[in-house]
Design a protein around this nucleic acid. Structure first.
Lengths: 330, 330
DNA sequence: TTGTATGCGTTATCAG
DNA sequence: CTGATAACGCATACAA
């Protein structure tokens, strides 16, 4: 186990060339005569030589790695996001550190420490304090993912304002009253935007909006818990707008478990359009955001060398309203 | 942005000492006189000096990082597993690379490339070929997570055999016949073990077992799809044993959506005991495995320097049968 | 086209 | 207790 690998020097000696030539051959840069290249290549192949990442990193003054920071990893949203990010990063040969803060106390310090190990960091909105974000950006290139630009830090996000359109659809097209919003705006820029759009939709339709959202997390289990609260009310809501599909599915499961009819007794909508949303009965009305693309764009931005004047500071990706059965359509 | 950090040399110059002394002070090793230490410490503090990770890594000949390789990141199972692993790794100051293979073609190569960047790799069962695993283990310490030991490679896993007990419970205590197993044994050691235990349970109860499982993935959406297939059969199963909770929840949602009664029309069981399982109506009967602990034990093993003679080759963590409403209990 | 020599930032050894 | 100095493995400007 753990055989000692050979170094440039040893390969150079065996192939009877200088270490410079070995380096040139192994990384394909500079001019090398065909015969020499052939010979060196054979030795490299034969001994399974691969340049030591540590030495290379030090010489090149770069880690060849980037990091992406999340609140947690649960659910298909993060999975998709990471896939998009990871794939794009791999393309350029960079490896990816994934940091889940899991609302740990030391999370901010961990992220700061991470800055010493990577060439850039993507930070998901709502994971670390703004102050920490600023300090981080002083050490290393940073992109905010699913949040707003801050000072010189660029952001990549989806168009959450479409929730206003969805809300208007429920109020006007279906004529529902007594809507509820499920999701906690505190600490999540996405949820904040969606809650605001929910209220905007009410204003557009000239219907008074609820004063407070049902503050709860973004996982499916949170949705079940929210359902428990909402359906026990004396005057339960006619329609429930959830901050994401996961909670919407949780609410839907809670409703189904109570024998409620959807959308007959209650309409439910989400945000994301994850795989489950088109599979449940009835299908979940939601807003599709290009999650994978979000991750990919973030990675590209991070790896394209930020900070030049005239750089893109805010990238907002389009979203799309997807009408299925759970809102009352069809 | 990206201010250039100071080096040992500059700190040494400012503090009027040698770089050796700065190193000693900054890492707290060796003997330094109180006055000198004080002075150097002040300079370090003042200039916010932190040793460059690249230089340190090269000098110490270690990366200070470990990796954990997964098939995908979807679902609470992986989230929990990673949390357990990450927390334990952070304790020792190591950072964590998370690699999702996402059934990519180049996954094996990516994992191999990863070996040049870390001090150890935990590989989840069913992610890469055995051959790749062996080559990997030649380069770097490896632990198999949720799989079986291979050659010299140790494994950490949960006791899947308890599925036999669960199966027996359904067959004997509840007297169900026509059970189905949902999950694809190919490529997942855990599912293989559970499928085998399912058959063992039938043998124990002297009931003929189904010849084939419903081969499908481990996500909730796969469960919904499985439900579609199972409930369309001319002779649908009386009880469904799922390879994990996610698929079980998917099946349950599919059943609920069709208006089926659980457990009246069909009993459903899972494996894992994720948060959702105690929240759905009826509660999901399942087998609890200590997911977080699984991750933690793996990290500890990986960081404790493997490979000595007499090392632990196989760690099997206990699981527990959790009876709720979905199997017919209560 | 090829080789020599230097730098990258630390840690660690060995004299003093 | 402190300081020179040698690794660590690679990339690259500069010479030949």
């Amino acid at each position: 186990m753990s055989n000692k690998r050979l170094t440039v020097r040893q390969i150079a000696e065996i192939a009877n060339v200088s270490i410079a030539t070995v380096s040139r051959v192994s990384r394909g840069t500079g001019q090398v005569s065909p015969e020499t290249r052939e010979r060196v290549l054979r030795v490299i192949e034969e001994h399974g030589y691969r340049p030591n990442q540590l030495g290379r990193a030090l010489a090149e003054q770069k880690h060849g790695a980037v990091a992406i920071v999340f609140p947690g990893l649960a659910g298909p949203y993060f999975s998709e996001l990471i896939q998009g990010f990871e794939y794009e990063a791999m393309e350029t040969g960079a490896s990816v550190h994934i940091v889940g803060t899991h609302r740990r106390a030391a999370a901010d310090d961990d992220v700061l420490a991470m800055s010493a190990r990577v060439d850039g960091i993507a930070v998901h909105g709502g994971t670390i304090k703004e102050e920490t974000l600023r300090r981080l950006a002083a050490d290393v290139p940073v992109v905010v993912l699913a949040g707003r630009p801050l000072d010189g830090i660029p952001a990549v996000r989806a168009d959450n304002s479409r929730v206003a359109e969805l809300t208007r659809h429920l109020l006007v097209d279906h004529g529902y009253r007594r809507l509820a919003f499920v999701g906690n705006p505190d600490g999540s820029p996405d949820v904040t935007d969606r809650w605001e759009a929910f209220r905007q939709g009410h204003r557009d339709a000239r219907v008074p909006a609820p004063k407070t959202p049902v503050k709860i997390g973004l996982q499916q289990s949170d949705g079940v818990i929210a359902a428990g609260e909402l359906f026990e009310r004396a005057n339960p809501p006619r329609a429930i707008v959830c901050a994401n599909d996961e909670t919407a599915l949780g609410v839907l499961i809670g409703a189904l478990g109570r024998g409620l009819k959807i959308p007959g007794d209650v309409a439910i909508t989400g945000f994301d359009d994850v795989a489950m949303s088109s599979l449940v009965q009835p299908g979940l009305t939601t807003i599709r955001q290009p999650i994978r693309e979000l991750g990919a764009v973030t990675a590209r931005l991070l790896l394209s060398g930020l900070g030049e004047p005239g750089a893109v500071m805010d990238t907002v990706l389009a979203t799309e309203l997807v009408l299925r059965g759970s809102c009352g359509c069809r």
